[in-house]
Design a protein around this nucleic acid. Sequence first.
DNA 1: GAATTATACAAAAACGTTTCAATAAAACAA
DNA 2: TTGTTTTATTGAAACGTTTTTGTATAATTC
Lengths: 382, 382
Amino acid sequence: MENEDGNSYSDPTRIAGARLGESVGSKESKKIAVTIRDVAKTSGFSASTVSIVLNNAPLARYIPLITKSRIQKAAKALGYHPNIFAKSLRSKRNHTVGIILFDITDPYCTPILRGIENTLYQASYLPILTDAHNERSRFERYLEMLLERRVEALIILANWLFLDINILGDLEKPELPTVIIGRELQSNSISSVTVDDEGGGYAALAHLYALGHRKIAFVRGPKALSSSKNRWRGVQRFLRDTGLRVDEHLVVDLPDQLSPNMGVDDAYRMTQELLKQRRPFTALMAYDDMTAFGAVRALTKAGIKVPGECSVVGFDDVSPSALFVPSLTTVRQPLEAMGAAAVNIVVDTLNSAAENRKIQAVHRKLSSEVVVRESTRAISKT
Amino acid sequence: MENEDGNSYSDPTRIAGARLGESVGSKESKKIAVTIRDVAKTSGFSASTVSIVLNNAPLARYIPLITKSRIQKAAKALGYHPNIFAKSLRSKRNHTVGIILFDITDPYCTPILRGIENTLYQASYLPILTDAHNERSRFERYLEMLLERRVEALIILANWLFLDINILGDLEKPELPTVIIGRELQSNSISSVTVDDEGGGYAALAHLYALGHRKIAFVRGPKALSSSKNRWRGVQRFLRDTGLRVDEHLVVDLPDQLSPNMGVDDAYRMTQELLKQRRPFTALMAYDDMTAFGAVRALTKAGIKVPGECSVVGFDDVSPSALFVPSLTTVRQPLEAMGAAAVNIVVDTLNSAAENRKIQAVHRKLSSEVVVRESTRAISKT
DNA sequence: GAATTATACAAAAACGTTTCAATAAAACAA
DNA sequence: TTGTTTTATTGAAACGTTTTTGTATAATTC
């Protein structure tokens, strides 16, 4: 069954295990790794003691400083580095967490990844990075690979996720701390970190409203995306709160697409169709920043100045948004903080080292904030 | 010495090794991992045979199919997954490569990372991702961590690298296949993947020239960056080839900065200073796309239309460049291919499993191409 | 002064593999 | 028949740790 294993003999990557000399004191080849026994021999103590001292194990309490320092000196002198494979074999731990994302080329991922990396670094964990390319099969393969590697936790970045509940099924089996960023599953074993999409949608519209806009077009996200639904819910809540009405014809939906980057082109087209209707609007609220980019392009192409004649607001605050001319007003997701939050969840779980710990899911919802930049402007008094 | 080790006792992340039941045939707790010996017992063969069969080792030649299938059946039935720690301990391999990059928030990294990930995937390797945040100390710490983990190779993405030769010193010691992307070291043991910056610089200018531009401003990159020097060398070569002259006053340099993202602001300021001189130019060549974004912003702010009154060309073709309004004409680096090339170099090295292999560095220089978009336009006939 | 308790270390048993060397049967050659 | 090779399988030794248990002393208590 394990024939496809990377270590199989048919795999040419295998390297014949060189291990020259070493046996009877031949000292020519220095390449031999120095083991804990070497340190033991050099320091004059046993391997056990060396281990205890070097790991500062409980028993180290009884070991006099002179012994400790001798051992440490020997270790340093020999350039001893513990073999992590052996260490892991014993401890069943490897201080590694698996990251699965669905499309690294989505700029949405980058700050989250930064947050993950940075927080893991502080906790002395290292991430194994995988990218499912929005393919279910690839996701499953990677999941399998990560489980085989015994990662201690799993962080899934569901930036553009159409795969649904089945993931859950695959994921539940291991007693593995797992957190999913960007979507809340109805699982009670998988944690989640999400942003307050509804509040963000509400705030974005409120911003436009405050600027005096009343005729507002909407390019909503793909129906299948929960974030799209939630943002729209925020919009509706605002509508109820204020009594503002939206023209049904000015609401269009992005098609379900495999890649967030295609969203730009789709948004471009949808906006063009919006314009074709010749129903006036003074502002446009886009599903996300990518959508907004497409919309701005279409508006500009049609000779409509942004923000002069039409304000545009995005969502996410991905990094290009600030660079854009005009820079994009948007709803900022605290992306880096979201990555950090995800890591904190799993690390906390790992630290609460109860034996029979039932992994209790925690769901964190972070709030968003409107970042006002150049792409929105108060409606001109005419 | 190893007191700061993540596995030390003072570290609360340590988990008490649960290992209930198992001893005298108590079958209640199913959580016990199934080992090769379990498969041996169930199938009626020895652990050796199971290992040989499951890994398709040379000796498997002598094992009749009936035995093989029995063992495989047993393995599958038990849900056997080899313990990767034990496996690594024996084989000294873990099919992992370390990636060190210097700033993941640089959009330049993303496609390279995609190329790395994708190519590693095909070779059944997994990347451990680290980000030095442009800090030397962090780089060194991560390097250390990766070496401790016995990654089989190292890929360094030197996108914005001011640290210099000293890295080399740190890097040479291990017999570890190493490739650096974005910079060619004068080492004969560290491979490199670079892009033809000089050719790109040449081509970018040639493009502007072909559009009729003769008064051209330059925002060069930080002096410390080799890519900056090389691109400028391409410019100079073009100047020599055509006899075109550049106004010294229209050449400015970006300051040495820690982060590529700051480059945008710097470029904005430098362009403003350029404009302050009131020396006319009809085109601007930027060090890279980020610089170009800053330049476009400054030009636009000053009321100068891009590309109507001033063409702008960037370098890199990072992903926002296509989204920009106007979309940016730029010199495309084959980023994904560069990532793939880097992986191919190390995987090839790993595969050439010669015992005493001296790691022979290979240096690949990929060519760039001008991508013409909206930000450049033929000079208006006035 | 005997019984306890702290201190200081070490031997040995895991952890779960892979692989070498050995063995035994079967097939083949002379 | 005997001797040699091929086929089929296994025991045991590594790989380099950590941790449990055990054994001495030395220091305390009664």
